[in-house]
Design a protein around this nucleic acid. Structure first.
Lengths: 230, 230
DNA sequence: GGATGTGAAGTAGTTCACAGCC
DNA sequence: GGCTGTGAACTACTTCACATCC
């Protein structure tokens, strides 16, 4: 039913980042027993303009109905499809401090298709504990095969853990450490940085962007790469 | 010394989101006893092109030296200045589960200028505990005055807590709950969503964007607003 | 020589506005 | 009537390329 690989032109980066938002809204609507929606409603809830919503969604193939709008279940599965959420991916999480536990415990972290296959911590006190149905192991002892690695370790350990992940053939990494790490070409690292959110919010607060400046808040979060420093 | 308010044209959104990245890199360099850097080096570590780095930084006033580059301390304080990090802001955090604790415990969450003034949880078991030097209180009993509110509560409580924050006159909110909330015009909400990072990573993984597609990974994280649903 | 800062050119993303379909 | 989907216009961002200054 769901063939993820109908070769359309790749989604633009901004579109790619709005799709999960639309999906969340659509899921919420389903929860409220709604059946359809339209670009204007999605616009109000997402902050994108109706035209942008339509442009984004039209990139997923023909899924709206002129005159009435979008069927929610169809919309949700089309976005799943576009993002590849109908495929199964194995995820390991390294670092079982508060953040690591918060992540694996959060129902929304493991999205459709993502399967938690390993949890690690270098602290012997934590090793052996059962978290999210898995036993915590020492990452230095080797990692279970996976496609995605998540790092929730202190900044000081970030580079070392990155190297471990790369050595374990895991080339897609989400880094929650406030640390720029280096990695070989062919590896992807996404940085997630809480303090950045605060910084941006403070800026908007001072400059009146966001609340004022047009009514609708529009924000983009930038996260960096870093191929091969010296 | 630091006058944040030299009225330049407001920073563009993409620039605004790269500045913290440059700053992090600069801080790391200072830690390694370096004194200056240049746009090419910042480019390598940030993933932006050298031209983009220069354009971004030139917006902060004249701070580079032709022929040699940027002095790190000057660069850091210029970014602080532009983002308003030299001003003091009061922050409250609602929700002291794993995530809330991880946040207030993380040294990088409270950036320069941000001051944690209140921590809250609706669980009586948690109330009274000392976390990050503060006693946890029941948010329903009222919140201490602050400029910024951070929500680390379950999705089901997100709307209620948003209303509390707004009632307490806190109009800048960071929402870590996977829940789209509604709020009055004049309030800013930034959504931070972990699962979104995974979704985007999965997309890049499938489509070969990022690792391939040009060598350097470039990613943008989009976070939504939502003014007034029905 | 070498790196910044910036007009000018190029590219990407957004918004308009309307034809097409329900 | 209403709402989608999309060429065309517009706006914003990025990149080039070079004059400028150390």
């Amino acid at each position: 039913m769901s063939s993820a690989m109908n070769r359309r032109q790749p989604l633009s980066e901004p579109t790619l980042h709005r799709l999960p938002v639309y999906q969340r809204i659509a899921r919420e609507m389903v929860r409220r027993n709604l059946v359809t929606t339209d670009s204007k409603t999605l616009s109000r809830h997402s902050g994108a303009t109706p035209a942008t919503v339509r442009r984004d969604l039209s990139g997923l193939g023909t899924l709206g109905t002129r005159g009435s709008g979008y069927e929610l279940t169809r919309l949700i599965s089309a976005i799943d499809d576009a993002l590849g959420l109908n495929r199964v991916y194995d995820v390991v999480v390294v670092g079982m401090g508060n953040l690591g536990r918060a992540l694996v415990g959060s129902s929304n972290f493991l999205i459709r298709g993502a399967r938690l296959v390993g949890v690690y911590d270098s602290d012997p006190q934590v090793q052996g504990m059962e978290i999210a149905g898995l036993t915590v192991h020492d990452p230095a002892q080797g990692l279970v095969p996976a496609q995605i690695g998540v790092m929730c370790v202190p900044a000081a350990a970030a580079q070392e853990v990155t190297d471990m992940l790369v050595a374990a053939n895991i080339h897609a990494i989400v880094n929650f450490s406030p640390q720029v790490v280096t990695y070989p070409v062919g590896t992807t690292v996404r940085y997630v940085d809480f303090s950045m959110e605060l910084q941006i919010l403070v800026y908007h607060l001072i400059n009146g962007t966001g609340p004022f400046g047009g009514g609708v808040l529009r924000t983009l979060g930038f996260t960096p790469p870093s191929p091969r420093p010296s």
